[in-house]
Design a protein around this nucleic acid. Structure first.
Length: 421
RNA sequence: GCGGCUAUGGUGAAGUUGGUCAACACACUGGAUUGUGGCUCCAGCACUCGUGGGUUCGAGUCCCACUAGUCGCCCCA
């Protein structure tokens, strides 16, 4: 065992791929219901696309896979939104697409973190972006899409947590209030919070280390600093969620890891006790200035991302039925020096749309029947030297074990006809 | 970046206070039926216990280091 996958990466083996296909199918169906269209952007971008000024998040500052090729610096994408917005601006889709422009993506993301349950260095995210219409109903609809996917996979124990960060004015006022409030308490806070105090004081509030501190409990609340417009917007988001029949909980501690969010932010978490340290299923929020950041017009957007690995695990834990692997239609047994004939017949069967397993190994009839059983084939064709001589072939129906001898040339046609009965 | 736990064949694993052939099950291959299957029976299948050192007359079993996995902290989907 000399080679293995790098830390934090993993292989999806054939026995496991069915789960992925199933979940991907649910996602594609649901996004189609909501009229989102797929977009595929590169797995790496110019580093500047991800490394934005004044970004205080660990993801951007500590966890990116960045490499130099010649003079250029590239980065493996740690998240999906930046690439989508970059593409939206680059191709001036605001000029050709109807608003809101609705995108979804599924693909690998890369973050250099210490792996653990539900967290890999290369992982897969499904995400959506809804750009160009700023409306509380759009926010609620976006959450509804994610919620519907989670529910379609039979995942129970789900909690929608939502909050608002308000607009620029509200945030600035709150930020100032926080800095003023925490200034005398700085020596009580952890090292990370000192950094947060400078870069993004809002994040002090969801610090897990200092969460039980007395000064945390009495900290000013964002809700007290929202201006009328922001408060009204959030109220309407909640009303829209009520109208959509989505249960939620307002959680003022949610401020999100990415710095580009404004107004609505949300996290949908699993309340299962066995979901480990990574309980977030999907999370996202609204961004007012991201589209213009990459050179586009001043449009607002909203999006979320779901970790596919977590989604699949949760669906599995809740007993979602991923179905059985498809059986073979036909198994072609070869006896003696007949491999070429086995190949020819198998190709004929496949051309007729029959999934066909062919044996090219010189081995006993018995062992070939065993593997025919394992393949689940409905028909077993026995092709030996005798058959080649006589130009006939034996076809055995697995169901009733009856066997008929037919001309070799007609075998594919006959099985195909039986299948259509 | 920090901490806990783990590391035996293709797989799941047993391996007592260090001391006979590294158990058992599944899978796999062959045979009992020299061309007709899912049952049964028989046979085969780890010169070796993550890697490297050390202690000992003797180590899969004890010690150290390294590597990897896993869970948690941080962070996040």
């Amino acid at each position: 065992m000399n080679y293995q996958t790098p830390r934090g990466t993993y292989d999806i083996l054939p026995d496991e791929i069915r789960r992925w296909h199933t979940v991907e199918d649910v996602i594609r169906r649901m996004t189609q219901y909501y009229r989102y269209r797929e977009i595929r952007t590169p797995y790496f971008e110019d580093t500047a696309v991800f490394k934005r000024e004044n970004d205080s998040s660990d993801m951007v500052n500590k966890e990116m896979y960045t490499f130099q090729m010649g003079k250029e610096s590239y980065t493996l994408r740690p998240e999906g939104t930046a690439g989508v917005i970059r593409a939206f601006d680059q191709h001036k889709l605001y000029g050709t697409m109807e608003m809101p422009a609705k995108f979804y993506y599924i693909g690998a993301m890369f973050r250099h973190e210490r792996p653990q349950k539900g967290r890999q260095r290369q992982f897969t995210q499904f995400g959506v972006e809804n750009i160009g219409v700023k409306s509380p109903e759009v926010d609620a609809e976006t959450i509804a899409l994610g919620y519907d996917i989670v529910k379609a996979l039979g995942i129970s124990s789900v909690k929608v947590c939502i909050n608002t960060l308000g607009d620029d004015e509200s945030r600035a006022a709150y930020r100032a209030a926080l800095k003023e409030y925490f200034a005398p308490h700085l020596d009580e806070l952890c090292a990370d919070c000192h950094r947060r105090y400078e870069q993004n004081p809002l994040r002090i509030l969801d610090c897990k280390v200092d969460k039980d501190l007395e000064c945390m409990k009495n900290a000013p609340k964002l809700s007290d600093y929202l201006n009328a417009e922001s408060r009204d917007y959030f109220d309407r988001v909640l009303k829209a969620l009520d109208a959509a029949g989505i249960p939620y909980e307002v959680d003022e501690s949610i401020v999100r890891g990415l710095d580009y969010y404004t107004h609505t932010v949300f996290e949908v978490i699993s309340t299962r006790p066995d979901s480990g340290a990574q309980s977030t299923i999907f999370a996202g929020g609204r961004y007012d200035h991201f589209v213009s950041y990459y050179g586009g017009p001043d449009l607002s957007g909203i999006g979320f991302a779901i970790g596919m690995e977590r989604l699949i695990t949760l669906a599995e834990d809740d007993g979602y039925d991923f179905g059985e692997e498809e059986n073979a239609d036909v198994y072609v047994i070869g006896l003696g020096d007949v491999a070429a004939e086995v190949l020819a017949l198998s190709r004929e069967l496949r051309r007729k749309g029959l999934s066909t397993e062919a044996n090219y190994i010189a081995r006993s009839l018995k062992s070939q029947f065993k593997s025919a059983d394992r393949s689940g084939a409905k028909y077993v064709v026995i092709l030996g030297e005798n058959e080649v001589q006589s130009g006939t072939v034996n076809i055995k129906r697995t169901a009733d074990r009856t066997q008929v001898s037919v001309p070799l040339k007609e075998a594919a046609e006959i099985i195909s006809a039986w299948e259509k009965e």
